[in-house]
């Protein structure tokens, strides 16, 4: 699989800039690319993709993968018809990554939502309040964690 001619230079530039930091990359179709990076590099990478490559943050998907959480930052390049997804993981023993909201105000809601639903902490978030769960719920109430159902039934 290879990217379309317009999309390929975007991936090339990212690889050139962050060569050693990139753990692995995958091109799933001519308009979908996935790049895995260590979680420490997410702010630097997101800054480059948003401000230099001019990508637009569509959303962030979080996935509970058992031992940790995977975060997928979907950046859309409208002119090149590409969705570039940066992915990083955080272990459950230390579920935290740096917030990109100071960089991209459009990420505020989705980061707060992930904090609510997964209990993942975004460090340096300017407004880390609850977004969609009620204030009255206990602090360890994270319904999209895989062990959430068991935890509730045990109580």
């Amino acid at each position: 699989m290879s990217l379309s001619p317009k999309a390929q230079p975007i991936l090339d530039k990212l690889v050139e800039r962050f060569g050693e930091k990139i753990l692995w990359k995958q091109v799933r179709s001519e308009r979908r690319a996935y790049v895995a990076i260590p979680r420490e590099a997410i702010v630097e990478c997101a800054n480059y993709v948003f401000n230099e490559l001019r990508g637009r943050l569509s959303t962030i998907s979080a996935v509970d993968v058992g031992g940790g959480f995977e975060l997928l930052y979907h950046f859309t390049f409208d002119e090149a018809n590409l969705v570039l997804t940066l992915r990083c993981t955080a272990p459950k023993t230390d579920p935290a990554v740096d917030s990109i909201t100071p960089l991209i105000p459009g990420a505020e809601f989705i980061e707060r939502e992930i904090m609510d639903l997964f209990g993942l902490v975004f460090r340096n978030h300017p407004n880390p309040e609850r977004l969609i769960l009620a204030e009255s719920l206990p602090p360890d109430f994270h319904p999209l964690r895989k062990d959430w159902g068991e935890k509730i039934s045990r109580k």
Partner: peptide, 10 residues
């Protein structure tokens, strides 16, 4: 996993 991001949210 199924993640939904509707436009008003953005």
């Amino acid at each position: 996993r199924h993640k939904v991001r509707a436009p008003t949210y953005a």
